[in-house]
Design a protein around this nucleic acid. Structure first.
Length: 344
DNA sequence: AACACGGGGAC
DNA sequence: GTCCCAGTGTT
């Protein structure tokens, strides 16, 4: 497997300059970004992030809005918050050196079992057992473990510990993950090319397609809302900042109704400017989150001079130029794009 | 042990 | 449409 990896490994930006002083920091940043996120999605974000904050000391001087802006579109925004917290903690408590012990790594916000092991192994080449989704799948197939990954999590962790080598841990950790990502993929796996096929139980028994078995799908709540797009005479858009907790924390979005099960009926009284002339755009946007679906109907209006608004708490008129400087939810971004108020 | 937390890519 | 991705924190 190691030989296969050395020959076939991908040229990923966080694998460069292993000897540089900031290498462990870069590995840490990559591990935050890679949580539940594919490599191809992460690469451009990682490059931009490291260009802006090449060292942990520089990152620790950033403010949250800046970090969230560079995270915009990547999802799971608590990661950005935790990464900033962690960099501050490391600068204050660990002399700006990313720790290499599992215990100290796991004290850092946003770093759990997997990330601690990955940073120790990939960042410092010290022994650690990093078990991510790829590793679980490779082990489950190689040992022919039927059932879901969750059913087998205990035994998978035991095996992972047993087969983890003491030496060259950095290469091993990446090799087994890379095998899962390139060859032993969830679908369209390529067993013919797999260096482990000789002893792979599910390959020999021809049950690769059954392993791991799918986890039962959970019901996704379907919600609805109306968003209000209002532009003033200077082409500024009225935006609202979300609360700093929970979903899409601290991000800006169009003013909108609550998210409710039954599609809300339009009424001027729910709009930010009840006296304006609101029109249904007939534009509907379905947005999928990990745990719910939201169907968004967009109403549009131009602000009348002298029109009064109801409640300006957390509301602000944002001009076109400043729209790209604030963190906007992906959903609102799509709406603004549809009405040619933002590029890209 | 179950749920909250994004968004996109592959099929 | 479905699955799932270099998971973590909260309840």
């Amino acid at each position: 497997m190691i030989n296969w990896y050395k020959k076939n490994k991908r040229d990923l930006p966080w694998r460069k300059n292993i000897t540089s002083k900031d290498y462990a920091y870069k590995v840490m940043v990559s591990e935050f970004m890679l949580q539940q996120t594919t490599v191809s999605t992460v690469i451009p974000y990682f490059n931009k992030f490291i260009k802006k904050w090449p060292s942990i000391k520089k990152l620790s001087k950033a403010n949250l809005d800046e970090v969230l802006l560079s995270w915009q579109g990547l999802g799971y925004y608590t990661r950005a918050k935790n990464l900033l917290k962690t960099s501050n903690f490391v600068c204050n408590q660990h002399n700006a050196i990313v720790p290499s012990s599992l215990k100290k790594l796991k004290e850092l916000p946003g770093i759990g079992d997997y990330s601690a092991a990955a940073i120790r192994s990939i960042g410092y080449n010290k022994k650690a057992v990093a078990v991510d989704g790829n590793v679980k799948r490779v082990i489950a197939r190689y040992y022919g473990l039927k059932g879901t990954l969750k059913d087998n999590s205990e035994i998978i962790n035991q095996i992972a510990l047993r087969i983890c080598p003491d030496r060259s841990n950095r290469v091993y950790t990446q090799a087994i993950m890379e095998l899962g990502a390139i060859i032993c993929k969830p679908r369209k796996y390529d067993c013919k090319k797999c260096c482990l096929k000789k002893n792979c139980r599910s390959y020999k028994q021809n049950i690769v397609h059954l392993i791991p078995s799918k986890k039962i799908k959970l019901y996704k709540e379907k919600l609805n809302c109306i968003s209000f797009l209002i532009v003033d005479q200077h082409k500024s858009v009225l935006m609202k900042k979300r609360e700093d907790t929970k979903l899409l924390a601290n991000q800006w979005e169009l003013p909108s109704t609550n998210w409710v099960k039954k599609p809300p009926k339009f009424s001027k009284i729910c709009t930010p400017f009840p006296k304006s002339n609101w029109k249904n755009t007939n534009f509907r946007l379905k947005h999928i989150f990990s745990h719910l679906e939201l169907e968004n109907v967009v109403y549009i209006s131009e602000k009348k001079i002298g029109g009064k608004s109801k409640n300006f708490k957390n509301f602000e008129w944002i001009d076109n130029c400043n729209l790209k400087k604030i963190v906007v939810t992906t959903m609102t971004k799509k709406i603004l794009k549809k009405f040619n108020l933002v590029q890209t």
